[in-house]
């Protein structure tokens, strides 16, 4: 029983990526060639990132990343490709995810309210 491996994100085809060389293409060319970037940098010079990975999930295990590719394309101030870097999953570091969250208010139903509230009849207007 083989675990199902799922392709994630936007993996540019190697032969197309090879055509993206510094000093030649503008942002429009890159978009035409590789499609929209998966994400862009939030601050500073707008670097384009093409992020893709392969994840798998088997039996009761949590989802795992098998491999990952991050392609970073930075542009100079004239909007021409300045630098193309590719990183795989080894570049990533294992960071423990903090559990603290910023509080958000909002009404919560207790068990009894729900059990008795909607036995059989779910009052439509509450759901509108």
């Amino acid at each position: 029983c083989s675990a199902d491996i799922a392709p994630r994100g936007n993996e540019p085809a190697p032969e197309l990526l090879a055509q993206v060389k510094p000093g030649e293409l503008t942002r429009g060319d890159v978009r035409a060639l590789l499609g929209s970037p998966s994400t862009t940098s939030a601050f500073g010079d707008e670097t384009w990132y093409y992020i893709s990975s392969q994840t798998t999930q088997w039996a009761f295990n949590a989802t795992e990343e098998l491999q990952r590719q991050v392609v970073a394309i930075s542009f100079d101030d004239r909007g021409i490709v300045k630098d193309v870097r590719t990183m795989d999953e080894t570049a990533g570091r294992d960071v423990e995810i903090v559990d603290r969250t910023t509080p958000t208010p909002g009404r919560e139903e207790t068990i009894i309210q729900q059990l008795l509230g909607n036995l059989g009849r779910f009052n439509k207007d509450a759901a509108k």
Binding site: A42, G92, V95
Partner: peptide, 20 residues
């Protein structure tokens, strides 16, 4: 964002975001 960039290995982005 810093957490995710670190996990993805995007070190420059992690540094920039932490600075902001």
């Amino acid at each position: 964002l810093v957490e995710a960039y670190a996990l993805l290995g995007m070190q420059t982005e992690a540094m920039k975001t932490a600075a902001v």
